[in-house]
Design a protein around this nucleic acid. Sequence first.
DNA 1: CTGGTAACTTGCATAATACAAGTGAAGGGA
DNA 2: TCCCTTCACTTGTATTATGCAAGTTACCAG
Lengths: 122, 122
Amino acid sequence: MEHRSQCPVASGLDIFGDKWTLVVLRTIFAGRRRYSDLLAMPERISTNILADRLALLERQGLIAARPYQVNPLRHEYHLTAKGADILPILQAIARWSVKHIPGRWPLPDWFVTAEPQRYYPV
Amino acid sequence: MEHRSQCPVASGLDIFGDKWTLVVLRTIFAGRRRYSDLLAMPERISTNILADRLALLERQGLIAARPYQVNPLRHEYHLTAKGADILPILQAIARWSVKHIPGRWPLPDWFVTAEPQRYYPV
DNA sequence: CTGGTAACTTGCATAATACAAGTGAAGGGA
DNA sequence: TCCCTTCACTTGTATTATGCAAGTTACCAG
């Protein structure tokens, strides 16, 4: 966890400044919590990148793995408070894209009105 | 400009989803508009990456080069309306980092209260 | 003629990402 | 029992991106 500087913008991007990390979080916000569900996202993420990003997000404390079965042990990935607080970033990105890139999907209502608290762990 | 999907989040990240693009924009918001000023940012960007990102941002219409001298021709990089509208994304990232990463610089007041209109071209 | 600045470009090494295939544990059916 | 399938990965290799150092071009000052 070495940061390029103490700048809040640069430091955030040290964690999630790549093509996939925020897309994975978006998918978890949409309710997909298992590896296979995440793998089936329309953007076609590859298996090693998904596994790598889930491990990174867990290490950084943005998501937490919770078992949903044993034999064999499998888990769902849930947002932590730290991860749920990413929502305003996703909303800002989405608003920019809808305004400036033609042909984007319209934003679903639940996404526009959602607040991080809604996704905090119980 | 091929997008992975029509998703507004993923499409935005297709444009600025890397370690440097948003850091360069942040620096321009801070008033540094020339190549040498941008190169002097505390995060130590390398020359080829800076030149590449400026070309990309210009091609995508987020910044525009305006000459400030001839002989030799040199230009400053100014935000377009499309580029200025990135501000809410930077603000959301900065707020998240200040809250969740210890030791970040406090946000300057001008940054917290800034609005994209302030940076629109004249 | 030499040195300096600004804004790059080029070459090469290293790191990140993409794609295909393989692995291991379990379950179901013939 | 043997074979086939699913889930959640891991491994190997190719391609792309990034990082670092050095070189280039145009100009100006002394």
